[in-house]
């Protein structure tokens, strides 16, 4: 299956990736043989109905979960060959996450949330402050540095989450239905912000959604259905 290592500019590669769950009701084929390549700088939108396997796929790409078959490559490195510690370091240094329910760390301020990953990386305090403030300003959050997540609206929290995901310049940002809890106007603004970051920082994005408005704006649309790629994938990018 995993016979040849993909070239370097392919940030993400899935080769025959399966993720089957064994449940009392039988085997659930959450992901059922997916082959996919994402190039550096792409903004890919992962579309599909609820239960089609979007989260499962993003979890595999983000090294939060392991495939039951096939292989996932990040920067050409097969994830199955990595230790738990190495995968933690990979997530820290190469991948940013944005979740549906924001998932900011409640005991940390906005600024501290954004600085957290850089702290794990051992970035000096002055650099941390400066970079975190810059990205928060870019996302229009300069007045909220010392607020706690609960003091922010959903849209603001999700912007902080985006800032946290991109601040340490990861190779890849994975966003799992980031706009699902937001109204359409806020959703559009967040999408604009992510696309702008994709342009200015050349950060690769994979963003799942079942919002047709967002699908319409995708430069590359990947459709999932029952754990398989929909043949009608539109490659425009």
């Amino acid at each position: 299956m995993a016979d040849q290592t993909p070239p370097k500019e392919i940030v993400v590669a899935l080769k025959g990736a399966h993720r089957h769950y064994t449940t009392p009701a039988g085997v659930v084929r959450a992901l059922d043989g997916v082959d996919l390549e994402i190039r550096q700088g792409e903004f890919a939108v992962l579309a599909g109905p609820s239960g089609s396997g979007k989260s499962t796929m993003l979890n595999l790409i983000g090294a939060l979960d392991q495939p039951t078959g096939g292989e996932v490559y990040i920067d050409g490195v097969a994830l199955s060959s990595q230790s738990k510690q190495a995968l933690a370091a990979l997530r820290r240094d190469r991948i940013g996450f944005v979740f549906q329910s924001y998932n900011l760390i409640p005991v940390l301020t906005v600024l501290e949330n954004v600085e957290y990953v850089m702290l794990l990386q051992g970035v000096p305090e002055a650099t941390r402050h400066q970079r975190a403030k810059a990205i928060l300003a870019e996302l229009g959050l300069e007045g909220m540095l010392n607020r706690r997540p609960v003091e922010l609206s959903g849209g603001q929290q999700q912007r902080v989450a985006v800032a946290r995901a991109v601040v340490s310049k990861p190779a890849l940002v994975l966003a799992d239905e980031p706009t699902a809890n937001l109204d359409s106007q806020t959703s559009a603004a967040l999408m604009d912000a992510m696309m702008a970051l994709n342009q200015t920082h050349a950060t690769t994005f994979i963003c799942s959604t079942h919002d047709p408005d967002l699908m319409a704006r995708a430069s590359r649309l990947i459709k999932l259905r029952d754990g398989k790629l929909d043949d009608r994938e539109e490659a425009q990018g």
């Binding site: 939060l64 510690q85 933690a88 990979l90 997530r91 996450f97 979740f99 760390i105 957290y116 794990l120």
Partner: peptide
């Protein structure tokens, strides 16, 4: 929350 910390790259 621990899931988030792990996702962000916090080591076990």
């Amino acid at each position: 929350e621990f899931g988030v910390l792990l996702a962000l790259g916090t080591s076990p």
